[in-house]
């Protein structure tokens, strides 16, 4: 569904992604693992059209995304839930969601909007309760749900998801559960999540990023069992690796 080859991304003179190839098949949940600055978010920005300065190939459903701006990418069926949520705090919850359906509303596809809204409120009933509340007054977790809900309002085929850092473990689990539900509804998901272990438990496959390159790819089970991955990315709860610091 998504096929990336030799992607190189630039911020001015700096190459943040140094020739990455990866692929996401229909119905898969794929997770990207790596330290901050490894290039995961940059890749998401390139796919979603936010970062125009890239070389290589990005194909979505056999069509190149080269030169597409963010609205065109959304229109083609890809929605991004950016890191840091980026909701509009002064607008209420309903208005935030409606903004996500901007393209559908312009097409006057009212039925689609109603259907998307129903899906979102089914997934996150709390949002329905808060429809008239300014988004800025929501808790961190609720804001995260709103950000995902807003992305879903465009009825995407592929969701690029970067839940924010610092979410409580319970919320992370809730959101990962939501992803499984979404996959059940036919959505394909590319996930960047700081909690690599949690992400790998829902993902089918993963790619390990290191300073702009992929150093390992494999099934989620393989990566979860990989001693190197455990040491580097699966968090401090792996006490057996304490001898690393000796």
């Amino acid at each position: 569904m998504l096929r990336i080859r030799n992607l190189k991304c630039f911020y001015g003179q700096i190459m943040a992604v140094k020739g990455i190839s990866l692929s996401v098949k229909e119905g898969e949940i794929i997770t990207l693992i790596g330290a901050n600055g490894a290039g995961k978010s940059t890749l998401m920005e390139a796919v979603s059209g936010i970062l125009p300065d890239w070389t290589g190939e990005i194909f979505f459903k056999e069509k190149s995304l080269k030169g597409m701006d963010p609205p065109a990418v959304v229109k083609s069926g890809i929605s991004l839930v950016p890191e840091g949520r980026m909701i509009f705090p002064s607008l209420n919850v309903y208005e935030n969601l409606a903004l996500g359906a901007y393209i559908l509303l312009r097409k006057k596809a009212k039925d689609d909007v109603a259907e998307a809204l129903e899906t979102v409120t089914e997934l996150f009933p709390i949002l329905k309760e808060r429809f008239r509340q300014p988004a800025g007054t929501l808790s961190g977790g609720e804001q995260q749900m709103l950000a995902i809900g807003r992305a879903l309002m465009a009825k995407p085929r592929l969701l690029l998801l970067e839940p924010s850092m610092g979410l409580a473990p319970m919320l992370v689990e809730k959101i990962l559960g939501v992803l499984e539900t979404l996959r059940g509804k036919g959505l394909t998901i590319l996930l960047v999540e700081q909690n690599a272990r949690a992400a790998l438990t829902v993902a089918d496959r993963g790619y390990v990023f290191e300073t702009g390159s992929v150093v390992l790819e494999g099934s989620a089970d393989e990566l979860l069992a990989d001693t190197n991955v455990k040491r580097a990315y699966l968090g401090k709860d792996y006490e057996e690796f304490d001898d690393d610091n000796r």
Binding site: S23, S213, V214
Partner: peptide
């Protein structure tokens, strides 16, 4: 290609 590139990087 993906596997070749990650092998070379490693």
């Amino acid at each position: 290609l993906e596997r070749l590139q990650s092998t070379l990087n490693r």
